[in-house]
Design a protein around this nucleic acid. Structure first.
Lengths: 212, 212
DNA sequence: TCGATGTCTAATGTCGACATTAGACATCGA
DNA sequence: TCGATGTCTAATGTCGACATTAGACATCGA
């Protein structure tokens, strides 16, 4: 079993991400290098390097010589990010819709049912997990590395919002409906419909979160 | 006239980018922190921070504890990046096609003629400049900040390739045709056509560069 | 001759210290 | 009272030094 090598920078990125997911850090909060360094028992050098990465992923707002802050996203920024995510995933799935086997389509339907069931039980964590699996499978046929990279990058950011607001967004049957729509469009192999449905799937979520 | 503040990190990013554009740095080359630091007369700290940014923009390949290298892009990676760029721009333009004034459409046509003329004179630098202006105007109506950010990021990478190969890609009349197609699609206000034409515009370039 | 092991070093990862700057707050004068 | 100016400091930007590691190359034994 090989040792997993991880620089301090990578561990800092993960740590800060967890703080964001668990709401220990939120919009407007400042990330002070010295404080984080002290908390983690390391020097500021890897902290600063981690900051650069979080900045590039839109998870931190950097004000030169002032400080690093957790972004306060405007409703428009939220919608913009979700919209962009939808454009990327819509295209990715549209391009590969003829590559899904019957088993895989079944799997998508199954995950949709799981999401609805978990939502019914108000198990948001599992809704998100099944949802992640759903979208991962959906996009898995596309191997455009650039598109997948940008999709993943955006997911980091949007996952925080989604994690925070899921309970307030959709009822159980809505959760089911929204994902069944996607599965139906994939089954239809109607390229225009696939992109339209997936884009709308994201715009809908972005718009809802934007008004919370 | 305000002083333009620029950290060493930003200057390093710019410097390395220039080396890439002018082919003083190319695929497979290693970027050694100490060497760059020495060349620029600064410490390694801002060099390392610049590296992180270049890595996030796909301009540097980072191998932990081994070194930083200029990526050798496979044909597939080239096509993937161009394709992704086309998906983003296609959507951006499709969404705003009804916001172009007659003057702006004229401007696009004018820039197309300029590109053709410069290509005729083999003035690649000016072809690129007019082309940049063309695509900037095209996308200028869309104010989706996330989408524009990703488009800009991708442009950094693709600009290097384009700059390097432009002379080998298209004859003057092809340069004109390709851009006129875009303008005609915008004038048609046929949403599906706009996305299709712009996507193809990028896929065509990516595919051509990929076989060079 | 070839695979295993050892050695060395160039390059990166991280450290603690120092320099610089933005912004908060105090002071002063009109 | 309010705008201009001054002061101070917390936070970032950068420095040079030291620790660690991957990989190149040498050596050795089967």
């Amino acid at each position: 079993m090989p040792i997993v090598k991880k620089t301090y920078k990578d561990q800092v990125v993960d740590y800060v991400y967890q703080l964001l997911l668990t709401n220990e850090l939120g919009p407007g909060d400042q990330l002070k290098e010295s404080l984080l360094a002290e908390q983690m028992g390391i020097s500021r050098a890897p902290i600063r390097e981690a900051m650069k990465e979080l900045i590039m992923n839109g998870l931190v707002d950097y004000r030169p010589q002032v400080g690093n802050f957790i972004p306060v996203l405007s409703p428009k920024q939220i919608v913009d990010s979700y919209t962009t995510r939808g454009v990327l995933e819509g295209y990715a799935v549209m391009e590969t819709c003829d590559q899904f086997s019957a088993e895989e389509v079944d799997k998508l339907e199954n995950l949709t049912e799981q999401m609805e069931n978990y939502a019914d039980k108000k198990n948001h964590k599992m809704v998100i997990e099944a949802g992640g699996e759903f979208h991962d499978l959906l996009i898995s046929k596309n191997n455009n590395v650039q598109l997948l990279e940008y999709t993943d990058r955006l997911s980091l950011k949007l996952h925080i919002l989604f994690f925070k607001y899921l309970g307030k967004l959709y009822g159980p049957s809505e959760v089911g409906r929204r994902h069944r729509e996607i599965v139906e469009s994939v089954k239809s192999k109607d390229l225009g419909l696939i992109e339209k449905v997936i884009r709308q799937h994201y715009v809908e979520t972005g718009s809802k979160i934007a008004i919370l």
